[in-house]
Design a protein around this nucleic acid. Sequence first.
DNA 1: TCTGGGGTCCTAGGACCC
DNA 2: TCTGGGGTCCTAGGACCC
Length: 417
Amino acid sequence: MQSLVCHLDMDAFFVSVEELFDPSLRGKPVVVGGKRDQRGVVAAASYAARKFGVHSAMPLRTAALLCPQAVFVEGHTDRYREYSKKVYGVLQRFSPLVEMASIDEAYLDLSGTERLFGPPLRVAHLLHEAVRAETSLRCSLGLSSSRLVAKVSSDQAKPNGVLYVVPGCEAAFLAPLAIRKIPGVGKKTEESLQKIGIRYVGDLARLDERFLADRFGKWGLALAGKARGQDAGGWFDSPIGENDDPKSISHENTFPDDIADRERLETALLRLSEMVAKRLREHHLYSRTIQLKLRYEDFSTITRASSLDHATQLDREIAGAIIKLFRQAWDGKTPIRLLGVHAGSLRTVEGQMSLLDEPQTERLRQAFRSVDHIRGRFGEASISLAKTLGSGIREKVHENPFDLPGESAREKGKRSE
DNA sequence: TCTGGGGTCCTAGGACCC
DNA sequence: TCTGGGGTCCTAGGACCC
């Protein structure tokens, strides 16, 4: 069956939601992200503001210089989340395989829905209309055989458009586009590609794969696939609709002014630790690696991590690790611009073994790997050798417990055979 | 122009283990 | 019997996305 992927991207999402709540903003240059003289960047700009050169990720103060008449709003994250959920609700009626890739974009697997909704362009228009009717918001849709091409085509369809790239035409569709249009190609990759004369996706597609692999490693190989419209490697390769748990949870804060006061800094770290712990508990997750982030007045940034002997979701333990890292990392003088607390190596309540077992599970795995290794080297005739080693492992169970809790003696015996 | 906050994935070296 | 090669974890940093 021909696969059909749809990528939906809301048009000027934050700005459009703001306009729903305050219609007087319509048509005006609007900047969402903060006050005009604040430290911070533009989260979203209305089309009227974009005409002045304002775009997202631009410092707010720059935006204010380019477009002094713009209305600056701080934004309402709760409202954006609410509307994001509404959109998700609409999409679920079109396919069970929906994945929100961020607050304002989603992927749908529409493969095999033709009998239900008709040909690709018809589904797309039904979807587009349903989103508009139920949220009063506009979006753009891209459809294609791969996630990558669907995403690029929704971008080409903006604003308020629909674009279907017919199977077989993926590479031809991408060829005339600037390499920067490929998701994952940012400033740095663009620069290094331009150095070797690559400007358009077509240039990239013509290059030899081995050349790209040599020059850019694993990323180069993925790049070669992308240039041809394939979901080659990395995130794009995973199936749509696998709603997995977050891999990390973090909070950070840039101060209005740089701070060199230890007490104020440590208070801020305690607050951030509490926020992280709260979110861990909400997700029923435990973290084993706690990371501190420091950004100095000159914008240079360091991170310092520490792995605990067990996973936690407690404020006290996270804060303890963070304060320790902070006291080791900070000289007590250099003013600090930003502090961050990051929790990684997450695991679920259910998946978590009792605290002390995890590393030993890994050791057990290693022990059996080495048995397999010896077998591989000396052949199955070495079974007696393996047996000797196996009993050795069982002996070690007592001094340096290799065994798993709750594992029956029978299973243990079976494992060491 | 003076650079947010929340994420993901990748790389690379050293430690450790078998 | 000796030696080595390889896997995984940890940490730090960086590119990228919205």
